[in-house]
Simulated assay, not measured.
Amino acid sequence: MIVVIKAGTPEVEISRVCDELSTWGLTPEKIVGKHKVVVGLVGETAELDPYRIEEISPFIESVLRVEQPFKRASREYRHNEPSEVMIPTPNGDVYIGEHHPIVVTAGPCSVENEEMIVATALHAKKMGAKFLRGGAYKPRTSPYSFQGHGESALSLLAAAREASGLGIITEVMDTPDIDKIAEVADVLQIGARNMQNFSLLKQIGKQTKPVLLKRGMAATIDDWLMAAEYIMASGNAQVILCERGIRTFDSKYTRNVLDISSIPVLRRLTHLPIMIDPSHGTGWAHFVPKMALAAIAAGTDSLMIEVHPNPKKALSDGPQSLTFEQFGELMDQVKHMAAVVGRGEREPAMA
């Protein structure tokens, strides 16, 4: 349930309304929009009469029920206003959201050694990426495949961050690793295989850094948004949704089926920012550029692209990784497409 406050309402009156609603056993969450303040009510609201809430204050414009099972993640919850995630990096604050330029994350599937990860970070930065992705801990289908270097790889990511100034995105697989990964990463990733690891979602929602939530390979959109709800219900509203391909009946020609249609669907359902990963979505480097551009045309806020200095020698996911040269070519196309849809880099304001 949301309470829409009239424009121009004094802050003291908003606080009074929230205090009153708290005495009803509800948790009011104030959401400040461009034009109005909305108060989201969390708790047992099914039996509440909206007219009873309206009587609390003449400054209440309306009281609306959130119909979706995912409450905090619902676009209704913010009165149809999109949210944004602000991420501090050594190169400055980066915003991911519907009203900001396209943000690109690039890097290898796994952190292999310091020379490789630093070289990749420097090239990604040169080409215009804002974040470096790289797995320290890697969930793999086979127990015999390379699982990542674990904790030792975190120091390599830190070295790449220092050398390039890029923000770091890396995956958390287990709750005991959250704190040590959060010391290095600017964004903590929940991978597709852990999307419904509810104990992990609850714990990662208790820390303060942004969370990148990848869609499970067999998850419906409702499943995915309810997973985001677990994180947000634990206190962290800084969630970015990442579509990375789903499993269907046809897997002969691509690794997964990249669900581009999820972008406009999510725009109707949720206020959360959207990222698209065409590398995992297709599984083949030659498909990645076309799907990246299609995602921008469909309205994504950001892209995650796998890049490796020598994909043929990559320890994991080499076939879907772009070379440095291919990534440079793609970034030129991304900049043109972003400009076409009005999501290009903004010129700095004149002094």
Rank of each mutant, 00 (worst) to 15 (best):
A227Y: 02
F327W: 01
P309W: 08
G283P: 12
R255A: 00
H280I: 11
Q189C: 05
R267Q: 14
L188E: 06
A228K: 02
K214T: 07
T323P: 05
Q238C: 02
R193S: 09
N256I: 10
D317T: 04
I305P: 03
D301N: 15
N197K: 06
H280D: 02
P319R: 07
I296N: 09
I231G: 08
P278C: 01
R215P: 12
G245K: 15
L293D: 10
R247Q: 14
G283C: 13
S316Q: 01
R267M: 06
L322K: 08
Y253S: 10
Q320T: 03
I231E: 07
P309C: 08
Y230N: 11
P273K: 08
D223W: 07
Q320H: 07
N310W: 00
G318T: 08
K206N: 04
T208M: 00
A295R: 14
T254K: 01
P289V: 09
M226F: 07
M304F: 09
A298E: 13
M291K: 12
W284G: 00
L272H: 12
K313V: 01
F324G: 11
S302V: 06
A295D: 14
R247H: 15
A298N: 02
E325F: 11
G216T: 14
Q189T: 02
S261M: 15
L225V: 01
I305V: 10
Q189G: 05
T208P: 00
L266E: 04
K202S: 03
W224Y: 09
R255T: 00
G328K: 03
T248G: 11
D317Q: 02
I274D: 07
M217D: 05
S261D: 14
Y253A: 04
E306H: 01
P273W: 07
A233Q: 15
